[in-house]
Write a protein that binds this DNA or RNA. Structure first.
Lengths: 340, 340
DNA sequence: GTAAGTCATGACACCGGTATCAATTTATAG
DNA sequence: CTATAAATTGATACCGGTGTCATGACTTAC
């Protein structure tokens, strides 16, 4: 509602404050070499005019932008949206903006596209959720381009400041112990694609958890799914048709676990009386299914937030630099019960 | 892998092509005032060097950016993610990037924040899904700032080029006719908050559909929910406890409809034998519930894509300008059956 | 063959910031 | 009180593009 129809520039501020634009620039960038009086005078003008520096001009001079990229290729949009929310939580008020960029991680042109994207946009930083976070060529490219990044994944593939580890294996182990403690011994596993590191880690953790209880995975009770509902239905159908039917099924994500519900219903089996089911992700569907499904919860939004905090400096926040460890947690609901 | 460790600039291209940078600029911007030979020579150099203009520098000179903003405040992340995907589909290869920006539409500072966001980033355009699309003050601000925008909503609030209408009412009417044709007469409605235009439109459409079949909505069978699962459970509990229990429940979104499943199970009622359920959105959970739920599908991703096509010029595509009409579609599954 | 008009191009300023380095002011030491 | 060092400040170039306008080359008209 000011008279001027155009936002003030650094020149306007400089003129009004009676200093050079460079001094205004120093104030903006919190240079220590500005006299206190001058600083205050300039800040007053900035406040009065509502001046805010132009990120393009600033970026041009700084040779970087104030954009953070979220590069993802996740079959599960729920993951993306949760990570994204957390990231935005951390970035709110920081002056940085989030640019989202879905990719096809199997594309042969992936690296070229990423190079162009990052170089042209001069990204300040990049967040890579799994499974893109598992691509070492991409990480190497980011290092070559000297871009900050945070990889979010189930296992430490990089130095701590650049890697946020979700310890999926621990959650899977917890699920294994849970089922074992309920008395199950014939426990099936519906795995994800082995090309996903998360799938490998979860399986390893699950087997470790079983081993703790003196159990081991029967290869006949292991099916590889595609992390999709349909693949879950298919795998479960096979498992539930076995003569020596498993009394419990652990699925490496909730989508496939939901498929087990469907297959069980179609086979006339009750959950959990005839077969216990435990999923992974604790996506919103888990608690809405009937019976509500036990699932390993990953704090996806928190992970996004922490990744954001690792990446961007945010004056609105001054958390200690200690990374709270990301720990999965088994949420026990009604889909897992004592065997029998 | 080139010798130079720095991306070529327009100056490099100009020097190598033996022309001025202004001429290179003309080639980039497809000016007609460049001799064919010159254009080819420059384009060859551009191709050989892999030159691409710096969006920041370009934006600074153009006084705008190549960023499109997605401004949303949706209680349902599923909606956001679908719209976002569609938008990104349309923008792929266009040279524009998508900046996502969640907001609190009830915040008193919303307009100020949006003004700063849009002015500072000099956004090329903005997409507003509902319910932010329903805020007329925001639309007025965008017009004042002379920013292109597309509002996505259930009813035409703006001129066609700026508004993408999803005709939610038609979908709700289809659901009404569907239930009426199955013989239901005691049909309950679980509405969303009346502050959501979508909720009002869906209800209006539903009543219109009932009227077509000579039915009307019994006020005793109308509950207002909050578009959440929990509110759906609560509303359904009340409805299913009525002496004159409804034989069918239409919910204005799937979240609440899922709540009806839970309430029905807890009340010992079978779907669809004792009560039919129809939802709205056809979110992924609809087909995974048991029995699979009938629901009105909104082509959210398509809507995002069309919004993107309306907003950004994309050389990779040259669709006719005719907007395919967005029509909701009732997906009939197993949760709705003949009364009795 | 020359005047006038069109086409193609480039020189230079500018978009709104920051970096460099010299100039000026202030503080400290002798 | 003066010499020297340290703290402030600003002039100017530059980041990588585009806008404006003048200039030179080439046509077309007479």
């Amino acid at each position: 509602m000011e008279g001027s129809s155009r936002r003030p520039t650094i020149n306007d501020v400089a003129r009004m404050a009676g200093v050079s634009k460079k001094t205004v620039s120093r104030v903006i960038n919190e240079s220590p070499f500005v006299k206190e009086d001058t600083r205050k005078a300039v800040q007053t003008i900035i406040r009065e005019t509502g001046y805010a520096p132009d990120p393009q001009a600033r970026g041009l001079a700084f040779r970087r932008s104030f954009l953070v990229g979220l590069i993802y290729d996740n079959p599960n949009p729920q993951h993306t949206v949760s990570h994204q929310q957390g990231l935005l939580d951390a970035m709110a008020g920081s002056g940085f903006e989030l640019v989202v960029r879905p990719v096809d991680r199997t594309s042969p042109r992936l690296l070229d596209e990423m190079r162009v994207f990052i170089e042209r946009q001069k990204l300040f930083g990049v967040v890579l959720p799994s499974p893109v976070s598992e691509d070492e060529r991409l990480a190497a490219l980011l290092q070559e381009l000297d871009v900050r990044y945070v990889r979010i994944g189930s296992v430490a593939l990089d130095e701590p400041g650049r890697m946020l580890v979700s310890h999926d294996g621990k959650g899977a182990a917890e699920a294994a112990r849970h089922l074992a403690d309920l008395g199950h011994t014939r426990i099936a596993l519906i795995s994800g694609p082995t090309s996903f590191r998360s799938s490998v880690e979860r399986r390893k953790g699950f087997e470790a958890g079983l081993a703790e209880r003196g159990l081991s995975l029967d290869p006949a009770l292991v099916k590889v799914g595609g992390y999709t509902y349909e693949s879950g239905v298919g795998a479960a159908k096979e498992l539930l048709a076995l003569k020596a039917r498993p009394t419990a099924v652990f699925c490496l994500n909730d989508e496939m676990a939901t498929g087990v519900y469907t297959a069980a219903r179609e086979a006339g089996l009750r959950i959990p009386e005839d077969v216990s089911v435990v999923g992974f992700d604790d996506s919103s569907i888990a608690s809405r299914l009937w019976p509500p499904m036990s699932s390993v919860r990953l704090p996806l939004r928190d992970m996004g937030r922490i990744a954001g905090e690792m990446l961007v400096p945010n004056p609105m926040r001054d958390k200690p630099k200690v990374q709270p460890d990301i720990q999965p947690e088994l949420i026990v609901r009604a889909s897992s019960a004592k065997v029998g």
